[in-house]
Simulated assay, not measured.
Amino acid sequence: MSDTNTIGLHEASASQLAEKLNELLANYQIFYMNVRGYHWNVKGRQFFQLHEKFEEFYTDLLTKVDEVAERILTLGHQPVHAYSDYVKLARIQEDKNVHDGEACVRGVLEGYQTLIELQRELLSLASDADDEGTAAQAGDYIREQEKTVWMLGAYLG
């Protein structure tokens, strides 16, 4: 009996990676809903610009939700799919009743910073497991989101 999965990774490593990916998935889902809320509820002088930018962000986040879940499946495991589980697993907290544009941008900035931190943890695990697929995905997300964090910081001054 082999101790590797269908893509050639040791099952113990794949299980550990899937657990971290499920944590990442939970954070993406909570963050996605926060950004949807910012999009719907933002008020103020920058409404039009922020409303449009938040839509860009949540559209990208939704794509990544699907990609992370599919990576979990590729590793031979099941993605969590209940919001009650997301709330328990996520470091990002639900952000309710936020209307002020600057507060919304701060929420987006903090959400991306948390995702980057989690993805760095995932990248380390993936590297240790010789899992190029997960490492590449995490690395791509980090690179993209670091630029977004820089831009959000510049916006906030």
Rank of each mutant, 00 (worst) to 15 (best):
R91G: 11
I72H: 01
D128S: 13
A154V: 13
D60H: 11
L122Y: 02
G8C: 04
R36V: 14
A82P: 02
I142M: 03
G8W: 04
L61Y: 05
T148N: 04
F48N: 10
T148R: 07
H77L: 10
D66N: 09
L109Q: 05
Q93F: 02
L21P: 00
N41F: 07
T6Y: 11
V65Q: 10
V149Q: 03
A26G: 08
V68Y: 02
F54G: 01
C104Y: 01
F54R: 03
E67A: 12
D128H: 08
H77K: 10
T148M: 06
T74H: 04
Y112S: 07
V105M: 07
N5H: 09
L109V: 10
E19F: 07
A69Y: 02
A126I: 12
L73N: 06
A154T: 14
L21H: 01
H10S: 08
D100N: 14
D66A: 08
P79Q: 10
F48T: 11
S124K: 13
N27I: 07
T6P: 03
V65K: 11
E67H: 08
D95P: 02
G107N: 03
A126D: 04
S84K: 12
L24Y: 00
L61G: 01
K96L: 15
E19I: 10
A90N: 01
L75R: 01
A136H: 12
L50Q: 03
G76F: 03
Y32W: 13
K20D: 05
G133C: 05
E146T: 14
M1E: 12
M1T: 12
A18L: 01
T63P: 00
T4K: 15
G153V: 10
Y112R: 07
D100W: 05
V35R: 00
G76I: 05
A26T: 11
D130V: 12
T114A: 15
E55V: 09
F31L: 15
L24S: 06
Y32S: 06
L9R: 03
Y38A: 06
D95I: 12
